[in-house]
Design a protein around this nucleic acid. Structure first.
Lengths: 144, 144
DNA sequence: AAACAATAGTTGCCATAGCAACAGTTGCTA
DNA sequence: TAGCAACTGTTGCTATGGCAACTATTGTTT
């Protein structure tokens, strides 16, 4: 691999792209008064799909630190979108699930997210998507 | 574009990959007692290349918020790696540049970063790199 | 020249990221 | 069964990200 190659700023480009995406999503949420953050949305989406999970599972599913999960869930509980439920058999465990309001929020925001994803990809093909996925997965797997 | 396509988690994958990269870099810095964070490194690298810049320029070059630049620079000044110098003609402006210790830090950490970049890319080709760059640039350009 | 607009940077606030330390609970083992 | 290890989740601390409000300075307009 050429010397000039490894010094190229892939880290920077990933960071810049992600920031711009996150920013665009957040501004769209704000403009439509959805009253959630991007990461709160990611948890809601995940809870919708898995119905009932623990903090630990949610952390693994979303690639987030468990402390971050703990705090975001706290905010979502305060907003009435998520409820906690203690496990009957293992009192260490707390199951998380969307409240009816949480499900409503999911359905309400979903199409917005769908549209934004289309916008990001509008000039790209499915092949491009497969390529990006392959490359990112490879980088992920390469890191110890 | 197929319906299943746009709902695929590109945002999530970008976020997860970047987090794993950042984490690996930080752990390596810590293990070698470099006493800097990944973002502090990015600013040092940029200041080494540009010698003398303002907060604003640095923010543009690194895709960071100017308030974030302000705070990271404050930490680097406290560590003695960066010094501030007021512009003679425009007293609003502050020029930033590495101290001799900052230049030392750059030279010290540089090869570590070089190695880590190689590790992330070890099973990928230059074509892959070009593809990733093209796709990320396109996404970036697509976002309003 | 006085008023106003634009620019450079800082500070306050809240959210996310990650590490360390902690509390409580459960499971294993001597 | 007593003691310890493992597991689940929370809290404290520091760093980064972004918005709004602010100060200080410079440029423009009338």
């Amino acid at each position: 691999m050429a010397d000039t190659f490894v010094s190229n700023p892939s880290f920077f480009k990933l960071d810049a792209t992600l920031k711009k995406l996150r920013n665009y999503w957040q501004k769209t949420f704000d403009a439509q008064q959805k009253d959630i953050t991007v990461d709160q949305w990611l948890l809601i989406e995940n809870l919708y799909k898995h119905k009932k999970t623990t903090h630990n599972e949610l952390a693994r599913n979303t690639s987030k630190d468990i402390t971050t999960i703990s705090r975001i869930i706290e905010l979502l509980v305060k907003k009435g979108l998520v409820k906690r439920e203690a496990d009957v058999y293992d009192r260490r465990k707390v199951y998380l699930q969307l409240t009816p309001e949480g499900v409503e929020k999911y359905k309400d925001v979903k199409s917005l997210v769908y549209d934004m994803r289309k916008i990001g990809w509008k000039t790209l093909t499915e092949t491009d998507y497969a390529e990006l996925t392959r490359i990112l997965d490879t980088i992920y797997a390469n890191i110890p």
